[in-house]
């Protein structure tokens, strides 16, 4: 299949529209992510996270995984970020620019992150230089296809996960409940 896919595509020099869109959205996503981890306003960080996660949902769509994309929007953008915002408020996070949003570990973190990024990019590019994804076939991530595989092959993990969610629910309630005095 790889050989087949490689045979259809000439190389980097002739990007398709999907590729261009993907790169652009990817850049936006990356920028939003960088802002998320670097902004000094805590609430802004949560908002930039919404942008990054939304951008990722678009990327999923471009990769023909539409169900995942909608789940992404639903859960991440809809609930996780809201939860995070609640968390920020409950912990009385300062509104506006806070000078100490970054800890003293920042230079080290920067070094480690850049090194890791360089290594990963180098390895990934080196490995998948000549690999193409064939997006012109049956849609891989339609709701139907995902549902079929999920409830035909992945039923047991799916149900186990529901138990895990229940446990997490109970745990979160127990943890966050104030003790009665």
């Amino acid at each position: 299949m790889n050989a087949l896919a490689a045979g259809h595509h000439p190389g980097f020099l002739s990007p398709t529209g999907v590729e261009i869109t993907f790169v652009l959205v990817g850049l936006a996503t990356l920028g939003a992510a960088v802002l998320t981890v670097s902004t000094r306003q805590l609430v802004h960080a949560a908002l930039w996270l919404v942008v990054a996660l939304g951008g990722l949902a678009v990327e999923y769509l471009l990769l023909t995984a539409e169900f995942i994309a909608w789940v992404q929007v639903l859960i991440y953008v809809g609930s996780v970020v809201v939860l995070l915002l609640f968390g920020l408020m409950l912990t009385k996070a300062p509104i506006g620019r806070s000078p100490d949003a970054d800890s003293g570990n920042r230079p080290v973190a920067l070094g480690v992150a850049v090194a890791a990024a360089a290594t990963l990019v180098w390895v990934v590019v080196d490995a998948f230089r000549t690999t193409w994804i064939d997006l012109h076939g049956v849609v891989q991530g339609s709701s139907r296809a995902t549902g079929v595989s999920l409830f035909r092959h992945w039923v047991l993990p799916f149900e186990a996960l529901s138990v895990l969610l229940l446990a997490a629910l109970v745990g979160a309630i127990v943890l966050s409940r104030r003790e009665e005095k």
Partner: peptide, 22 residues
């Protein structure tokens, strides 16, 4: 006692190992 320091060292070590392996 700072978790971030520990984690930094851990990840830095992981990167070094990855580079070495690569």
């Amino acid at each position: 006692g700072n978790v971030q320091t520990y984690l930094s060292a851990l990840l830095a070590g992981a990167v070094v190992l990855a580079v070495l392996v690569a």
